[in-house]
Computed example of a mutant assay.
Amino acid sequence: MTETCTLCGHSWGVTTTPRPAVLCTPCGRPAPNRRPAHYWHLRATTGHPVQRYRSVDWWDQQTSLADLRQAAANATTL
């Protein structure tokens, strides 16, 4: 028995009854372009209290830097 992600179509095996509407781990993570309200709610309510009230531009910059670090890490494996 397998479950299939409703966004990307990735499948994985399960030992229980498959759920009809499920997301894989990468698709389930909130992102600005996917589930934006949940993404910004988590950004505003988690972390150090000083960082809770940062501007949207600041969070965008941090996300961009994290994306660049991940891209550099991916490039080293090519």
Rank of each mutant, 00 (worst) to 15 (best):
P36R: 05
T63F: 03
C27I: 05
S64N: 11
T76H: 08
V14I: 13
H48N: 12
S64C: 08
T46L: 08
G9S: 10
W59R: 14
T25S: 09
Q70G: 06
P30I: 04
R29I: 14
W59F: 09
D67Y: 00
W40I: 02
S11N: 13
A37Q: 08
T45C: 05
S64R: 15
Q70I: 06
W40E: 01
P30L: 02
H41Y: 07
A71K: 11
L23P: 07
Q70W: 07
N33T: 13
P26M: 03
W58S: 09
G13W: 12
P49I: 02
V56S: 09
T2W: 10
L78I: 06
P20C: 02
R43Y: 00
T45R: 13
P20L: 10
D60E: 13
P20S: 11
P20W: 00
C8E: 04
G28C: 07
V14D: 04
G47H: 06
Q70E: 06
P18C: 04
W58Y: 09
V22S: 07
R34Q: 09
L78P: 02
C8I: 10
R34C: 05
L42I: 03
A75H: 13
T25L: 13
V50N: 08
R35Q: 10
G47M: 04
R54G: 10
L68N: 04
G13E: 15
D67W: 03
T2F: 12
P32Y: 00
D60T: 11
L65R: 14
C24G: 04
P36N: 01
W12A: 11
P18R: 07
H10E: 13
E3P: 12
A44C: 08
V56D: 04
D67R: 15
L23Y: 03
A44W: 02
A72D: 03
G9R: 13
A66D: 04
A71P: 02
N33W: 10
S11W: 05
L68V: 02
T6M: 09
A44N: 14
W12R: 15
C5I: 04
Q51Y: 01
G13K: 15
T16Q: 12
A66Y: 00
T46Q: 09
G47S: 05
R29W: 07
P20R: 15
T77Y: 00
T2S: 12
T25N: 10
T45M: 07
L65Y: 00
Q61R: 15
Y39S: 02
L68F: 00
L65T: 03
P26V: 01
A44I: 02
H10T: 14
P30G: 00
L68G: 00
L7V: 15
L78D: 00
T16H: 14
R19T: 11
D57R: 14
H41C: 05
R35L: 11
Q51D: 06
D67C: 08
T25G: 07
R69D: 11
W40A: 00
A75I: 06
T16I: 10
P49G: 02
T6Q: 12
R19C: 08
W12M: 12
T17L: 07
C8H: 10
N33M: 09
R34M: 02
C5D: 04
P36Q: 01
